[in-house]
Amino acid sequence: MEICKILDPGMLCTIQDLGRKGFYTIGIPTSGVFDQISFKYGNAILKNNANDAGIEVLWGGLRLVFMEDTVIAITGADMHPKVDDAAVPMWRPIQVKKGQILTLKGPPEIGVRAYLSIAGGIDVPEFYGSRSTYLLLGRGGYEGRKLEKGDILSSFEAGNRAGLEDVNQYVIPTFSYPWRIRILLGLQKDLFDAQTLQNFGEKKWTVTDKANRVGLRLSGQEVKYHIRDGVIDSGIGGIDPSNIPTEGNPLGSIQCPSETELIVIGPDGPCEGGYAKIGTIITADFHLLGQVKPGDDIFFRPIRYSEAYRALHDQKEELSYI
Protein backbone atom coordinates (compact mmCIF):
# COMPACT_ATOMS: atom_id res chain seq x y z
CA MET A 1 0.00 0.00 0.00
CA GLU A 2 1.49 3.37 -1.05
CA ILE A 3 1.57 5.31 2.18
CA CYS A 4 3.51 8.53 1.70
CA LYS A 5 5.43 10.66 -0.76
CA ILE A 6 8.63 12.52 0.12
CA LEU A 7 8.32 16.27 -0.54
CA ASP A 8 11.72 17.14 0.93
CA PRO A 9 14.13 14.56 2.38
CA GLY A 10 16.02 17.12 4.46
CA MET A 11 19.62 16.38 5.32
CA LEU A 12 19.64 12.57 5.29
CA CYS A 13 16.77 10.12 5.59
CA THR A 14 17.24 6.37 5.19
CA ILE A 15 15.03 3.32 5.66
CA GLN A 16 16.32 1.20 8.54
CA ASP A 17 15.28 -1.72 10.73
CA LEU A 18 17.27 -3.49 13.45
CA GLY A 19 19.97 -4.45 10.95
CA ARG A 20 21.50 -7.59 9.47
CA LYS A 21 23.39 -10.18 11.43
CA GLY A 22 25.81 -12.91 10.51
CA PHE A 23 27.60 -11.45 7.48
CA TYR A 24 30.80 -9.97 8.91
CA THR A 25 32.81 -12.66 7.09
CA ILE A 26 31.79 -11.19 3.74
CA GLY A 27 32.21 -7.62 4.90
CA ILE A 28 28.58 -6.73 5.46
CA PRO A 29 28.14 -4.74 8.68
CA THR A 30 24.97 -4.68 10.73
CA SER A 31 23.71 -1.29 9.46
CA GLY A 32 20.27 -0.69 10.94
CA VAL A 33 19.07 2.15 13.12
CA PHE A 34 21.82 3.97 15.00
CA ASP A 35 19.60 4.65 18.03
CA GLN A 36 17.95 1.27 18.51
CA ILE A 37 16.17 2.25 21.69
CA SER A 38 14.25 5.21 20.22
CA PHE A 39 13.41 3.08 17.19
CA LYS A 40 12.15 0.19 19.31
CA TYR A 41 9.88 2.56 21.22
CA GLY A 42 8.43 3.78 17.91
CA ASN A 43 7.47 0.27 16.85
CA ALA A 44 6.26 -0.62 20.35
CA ILE A 45 4.02 2.47 20.47
CA LEU A 46 2.37 1.38 17.18
CA LYS A 47 2.27 -2.28 18.24
CA ASN A 48 4.35 -3.03 15.17
CA ASN A 49 6.78 -5.92 15.12
CA ALA A 50 10.08 -4.88 16.72
CA ASN A 51 11.94 -5.21 13.42
CA ASP A 52 9.46 -3.36 11.18
CA ALA A 53 11.32 -0.81 9.05
CA GLY A 54 11.04 2.93 9.65
CA ILE A 55 12.74 6.13 8.53
CA GLU A 56 15.88 7.36 10.26
CA VAL A 57 15.87 11.16 10.04
CA LEU A 58 19.17 12.99 10.54
CA TRP A 59 19.04 16.58 11.77
CA GLY A 60 15.65 17.43 10.24
CA GLY A 61 14.19 19.00 7.13
CA LEU A 62 11.92 16.07 6.24
CA ARG A 63 8.53 16.86 4.69
CA LEU A 64 6.20 14.19 3.38
CA VAL A 65 2.54 13.85 2.41
CA PHE A 66 0.40 10.87 3.42
CA MET A 67 -1.37 8.98 0.64
CA GLU A 68 -3.63 7.00 3.01
CA ASP A 69 -4.97 7.35 6.56
CA THR A 70 -2.57 5.73 8.98
CA VAL A 71 -1.02 5.90 12.44
CA ILE A 72 2.55 7.05 12.97
CA ALA A 73 4.96 7.61 15.85
CA ILE A 74 8.00 9.86 15.99
CA THR A 75 10.71 9.02 18.50
CA GLY A 76 14.33 9.94 19.16
CA ALA A 77 15.65 13.51 19.00
CA ASP A 78 12.90 16.16 19.18
CA MET A 79 12.49 17.48 15.63
CA HIS A 80 9.45 19.64 16.53
CA PRO A 81 7.09 17.62 14.36
CA LYS A 82 4.03 19.17 12.78
CA VAL A 83 1.09 17.66 10.92
CA ASP A 84 -0.05 20.38 8.54
CA ASP A 85 0.29 23.46 10.76
CA ALA A 86 -0.37 21.83 14.13
CA ALA A 87 2.43 20.72 16.44
CA VAL A 88 2.21 17.00 17.31
CA PRO A 89 3.94 15.22 20.19
CA MET A 90 6.97 12.97 20.03
CA TRP A 91 6.71 9.43 21.54
CA ARG A 92 2.96 9.18 20.91
CA PRO A 93 0.76 7.41 18.39
CA ILE A 94 -0.57 10.03 15.95
CA GLN A 95 -3.54 9.49 13.65
CA VAL A 96 -2.90 11.08 10.25
CA LYS A 97 -5.25 11.48 7.30
CA LYS A 98 -4.67 11.10 3.59
CA GLY A 99 -3.35 14.38 2.19
CA GLN A 100 -1.93 15.66 5.47
CA ILE A 101 1.67 16.84 5.48
CA LEU A 102 4.17 15.84 8.14
CA THR A 103 7.12 18.14 8.76
CA LEU A 104 10.11 17.27 10.91
CA LYS A 105 11.79 20.63 10.78
CA GLY A 106 14.49 20.16 13.39
CA PRO A 107 17.16 20.74 14.34
CA PRO A 108 16.79 19.19 17.79
CA GLU A 109 18.24 20.87 20.87
CA ILE A 110 19.70 17.55 22.06
CA GLY A 111 20.41 14.61 19.81
CA VAL A 112 20.53 14.35 16.05
CA ARG A 113 18.41 11.38 14.89
CA ALA A 114 14.66 10.88 14.97
CA TYR A 115 12.66 7.84 13.87
CA LEU A 116 9.43 7.91 11.95
CA SER A 117 7.53 4.67 12.40
CA ILE A 118 4.43 3.90 10.38
CA ALA A 119 1.78 1.32 11.29
CA GLY A 120 2.68 -1.97 9.59
CA GLY A 121 6.26 -0.91 8.83
CA ILE A 122 7.76 0.25 5.55
CA ASP A 123 7.70 -2.20 2.67
CA VAL A 124 11.03 -2.37 0.85
CA PRO A 125 12.83 -5.54 -0.33
CA GLU A 126 15.16 -7.32 2.07
CA PHE A 127 18.88 -7.46 1.35
CA TYR A 128 20.74 -10.16 3.30
CA GLY A 129 17.82 -10.53 5.68
CA SER A 130 17.22 -6.87 6.49
CA ARG A 131 15.48 -3.81 5.07
CA SER A 132 18.21 -1.49 6.34
CA THR A 133 19.96 0.87 3.94
CA TYR A 134 23.70 0.30 3.60
CA LEU A 135 24.81 3.41 1.76
CA LEU A 136 28.45 2.38 1.10
CA LEU A 137 27.34 -0.64 -0.90
CA GLY A 138 24.24 1.08 -2.27
CA ARG A 139 21.96 -1.76 -1.13
CA GLY A 140 19.03 -2.26 1.18
CA GLY A 141 16.33 0.22 2.10
CA TYR A 142 14.85 2.30 -0.71
CA GLU A 143 16.87 1.33 -3.81
CA GLY A 144 20.03 1.28 -1.72
CA ARG A 145 20.10 5.02 -1.29
CA LYS A 146 18.97 7.91 0.87
CA LEU A 147 15.44 9.18 0.31
CA GLU A 148 14.93 11.82 -2.38
CA LYS A 149 12.15 14.22 -3.29
CA GLY A 150 9.34 12.40 -5.08
CA ASP A 151 10.05 8.95 -3.60
CA ILE A 152 6.86 7.03 -2.82
CA LEU A 153 7.06 4.68 0.16
CA SER A 154 4.79 1.72 0.76
CA SER A 155 3.83 0.15 4.05
CA PHE A 156 2.60 -3.30 5.02
CA GLU A 157 -0.97 -3.77 6.23
CA ALA A 158 -1.09 -2.96 9.92
CA GLY A 159 -3.97 -5.33 10.61
CA ASN A 160 -5.34 -4.69 14.07
CA ARG A 161 -1.95 -3.98 15.53
CA ALA A 162 -1.88 -0.19 15.35
CA GLY A 163 -3.30 1.18 18.54
CA LEU A 164 -4.07 4.66 19.71
CA GLU A 165 -3.96 3.88 23.42
CA ASP A 166 -1.66 6.28 25.13
CA VAL A 167 1.86 5.36 26.09
CA ASN A 168 3.08 5.15 29.63
CA GLN A 169 4.71 8.57 30.16
CA TYR A 170 7.19 7.40 32.70
CA VAL A 171 9.16 5.01 30.55
CA ILE A 172 9.88 7.39 27.69
CA PRO A 173 13.66 7.80 27.35
CA THR A 174 15.11 11.27 27.74
CA PHE A 175 18.50 12.49 26.59
CA SER A 176 20.80 14.49 28.80
CA TYR A 177 23.78 16.50 27.71
CA PRO A 178 26.80 16.27 27.95
CA TRP A 179 26.68 12.65 26.86
CA ARG A 180 27.72 10.10 29.46
CA ILE A 181 28.42 6.77 27.86
CA ARG A 182 29.48 3.63 29.69
CA ILE A 183 32.26 1.50 28.27
CA LEU A 184 34.04 -1.75 28.99
CA LEU A 185 37.80 -1.45 28.77
CA GLY A 186 39.27 -4.38 26.93
CA LEU A 187 40.86 -5.75 23.77
CA GLN A 188 44.23 -3.92 23.53
CA LYS A 189 43.85 -1.85 26.71
CA ASP A 190 47.17 -3.20 27.99
CA LEU A 191 48.97 -1.43 25.14
CA PHE A 192 48.00 1.99 26.55
CA ASP A 193 49.89 3.75 29.31
CA ALA A 194 48.38 4.15 32.77
CA GLN A 195 47.79 7.89 32.46
CA THR A 196 45.89 7.44 29.20
CA LEU A 197 43.65 4.78 30.73
CA GLN A 198 42.96 7.01 33.73
CA ASN A 199 42.27 10.16 31.68
CA PHE A 200 40.07 8.17 29.39
CA GLY A 201 37.34 7.83 31.96
CA GLU A 202 37.73 11.25 33.55
CA LYS A 203 38.17 13.86 30.85
CA LYS A 204 35.88 14.82 28.03
CA TRP A 205 36.12 13.91 24.37
CA THR A 206 34.72 16.16 21.64
CA VAL A 207 33.07 14.89 18.47
CA THR A 208 34.82 16.22 15.34
CA ASP A 209 32.99 17.03 12.11
CA LYS A 210 33.85 13.54 10.87
CA ALA A 211 30.85 11.77 12.32
CA ASN A 212 28.40 9.59 10.43
CA ARG A 213 26.93 6.08 10.40
CA VAL A 214 30.32 4.55 9.55
CA GLY A 215 32.01 5.96 12.61
CA LEU A 216 32.74 9.03 14.67
CA ARG A 217 36.12 10.64 15.16
CA LEU A 218 36.63 12.19 18.58
CA SER A 219 39.41 14.47 19.77
CA GLY A 220 40.40 16.34 22.89
CA GLN A 221 42.83 14.16 24.79
CA GLU A 222 46.20 12.64 24.26
CA VAL A 223 46.44 8.88 23.78
CA LYS A 224 49.76 7.31 24.65
CA TYR A 225 50.90 3.77 24.00
CA HIS A 226 53.54 1.85 25.92
CA ILE A 227 56.72 1.89 23.94
CA ARG A 228 57.05 -1.52 22.36
CA ASP A 229 60.22 -2.97 20.94
CA GLY A 230 60.69 -2.79 17.19
CA VAL A 231 58.17 -4.42 14.96
CA ILE A 232 55.28 -5.77 16.95
CA ASP A 233 53.53 -9.06 16.38
CA SER A 234 56.00 -10.24 13.73
CA GLY A 235 55.11 -7.24 11.60
CA ILE A 236 51.72 -8.57 10.64
CA GLY A 237 50.02 -5.48 11.96
CA GLY A 238 52.46 -2.75 11.03
CA ILE A 239 55.25 -0.81 12.67
CA ASP A 240 53.42 2.00 14.43
CA PRO A 241 52.52 1.44 18.13
CA SER A 242 48.84 1.76 17.25
CA ASN A 243 49.06 -1.02 14.63
CA ILE A 244 47.81 -4.49 15.46
CA PRO A 245 47.13 -7.52 13.31
CA THR A 246 43.68 -7.07 11.83
CA GLU A 247 40.85 -8.02 14.19
CA GLY A 248 37.09 -7.93 14.18
CA ASN A 249 35.63 -4.50 14.91
CA PRO A 250 32.87 -4.82 17.49
CA LEU A 251 30.03 -2.32 17.14
CA GLY A 252 30.91 0.66 19.34
CA SER A 253 34.54 -0.31 19.75
CA ILE A 254 36.94 2.57 20.23
CA GLN A 255 40.07 2.59 18.07
CA CYS A 256 43.05 4.82 18.70
CA PRO A 257 44.94 5.25 15.41
CA SER A 258 46.84 8.36 16.50
CA GLU A 259 47.88 10.28 19.60
CA THR A 260 45.05 12.77 19.34
CA GLU A 261 42.05 11.04 17.80
CA LEU A 262 39.68 8.19 18.51
CA ILE A 263 37.41 6.43 16.05
CA VAL A 264 34.23 4.81 17.34
CA ILE A 265 32.75 2.18 15.03
CA GLY A 266 29.16 2.87 13.94
CA PRO A 267 26.51 0.59 12.38
CA ASP A 268 27.88 0.98 8.83
CA GLY A 269 31.51 0.70 9.97
CA PRO A 270 34.06 -1.77 8.64
CA CYS A 271 33.80 -5.28 10.13
CA GLU A 272 37.52 -5.43 10.85
CA GLY A 273 40.47 -3.13 11.35
CA GLY A 274 44.11 -2.98 12.33
CA TYR A 275 44.27 -0.27 14.98
CA ALA A 276 44.48 -0.94 18.71
CA LYS A 277 41.19 -0.60 20.58
CA ILE A 278 40.92 0.64 24.13
CA GLY A 279 37.42 -0.67 24.78
CA THR A 280 33.83 -0.84 23.63
CA ILE A 281 30.65 1.05 24.41
CA ILE A 282 28.22 -1.18 26.30
CA THR A 283 25.28 -2.47 24.25
CA ALA A 284 22.80 -0.68 26.54
CA ASP A 285 24.41 2.72 25.78
CA PHE A 286 25.31 2.29 22.11
CA HIS A 287 22.10 4.03 21.04
CA LEU A 288 23.34 7.25 22.66
CA LEU A 289 26.18 7.34 20.16
CA GLY A 290 23.52 7.64 17.47
CA GLN A 291 22.43 10.91 19.03
CA VAL A 292 25.76 12.72 19.31
CA LYS A 293 26.69 15.35 16.77
CA PRO A 294 29.83 17.26 15.76
CA GLY A 295 30.91 19.59 18.55
CA ASP A 296 29.21 17.56 21.30
CA ASP A 297 31.15 16.52 24.40
CA ILE A 298 31.24 12.92 25.60
CA PHE A 299 32.37 11.51 28.92
CA PHE A 300 33.15 7.80 28.86
CA ARG A 301 32.79 5.85 32.09
CA PRO A 302 34.46 2.45 32.36
CA ILE A 303 32.25 -0.02 34.25
CA ARG A 304 32.25 -3.69 35.16
CA TYR A 305 30.82 -6.44 32.98
CA SER A 306 28.12 -7.30 35.51
CA GLU A 307 26.86 -3.70 35.38
CA ALA A 308 26.73 -3.78 31.57
CA TYR A 309 24.54 -6.89 31.56
CA ARG A 310 22.29 -5.52 34.30
CA ALA A 311 21.82 -2.28 32.31
CA LEU A 312 20.86 -4.28 29.24
CA HIS A 313 18.28 -6.40 31.05
CA ASP A 314 16.82 -3.33 32.81
CA GLN A 315 16.49 -1.59 29.46
CA LYS A 316 14.67 -4.56 27.97
CA GLU A 317 12.30 -4.65 30.90
CA GLU A 318 11.51 -0.92 30.63
CA LEU A 319 10.66 -1.30 26.97
CA SER A 320 8.24 -4.10 27.81
CA TYR A 321 6.13 -1.69 29.92
CA ILE A 322 4.88 0.20 26.86
Binding site: I26, G27, L136, I236, I239, D240, T246, C271, E272
Partner: peptide
Amino acid sequence: YTSFMFGSVGAFPIGKYKNIKNSKY
Protein backbone atom coordinates in the same frame (compact mmCIF):
# COMPACT_ATOMS: atom_id res chain seq x y z
CA TYR B 1 39.70 -12.90 5.18
CA THR B 2 37.13 -10.92 3.19
CA SER B 3 35.48 -8.99 6.01
CA PHE B 4 36.69 -5.41 5.59
CA MET B 5 33.99 -4.54 3.06
CA PHE B 6 31.88 -6.53 0.60
CA GLY B 7 34.30 -7.76 -2.10
CA SER B 8 37.41 -6.81 -0.14
CA VAL B 9 40.35 -9.16 0.40
CA GLY B 10 43.03 -9.60 3.07
CA ALA B 11 45.78 -11.94 1.88
CA PHE B 12 49.39 -12.78 2.68
CA PRO B 13 52.30 -14.18 0.68
CA ILE B 14 53.14 -17.88 1.00
CA GLY B 15 56.06 -19.97 -0.17
CA LYS B 16 59.36 -18.18 -0.81
CA TYR B 17 59.18 -14.39 -0.98
CA LYS B 18 61.04 -11.24 0.01
CA ASN B 19 59.22 -9.50 2.81
CA ILE B 20 57.81 -5.97 2.60
CA LYS B 21 57.20 -4.24 5.91
CA ASN B 22 55.63 -0.84 6.27
CA SER B 23 53.60 1.42 8.51
CA LYS B 24 49.96 2.37 8.02
CA TYR B 25 48.52 5.88 7.81
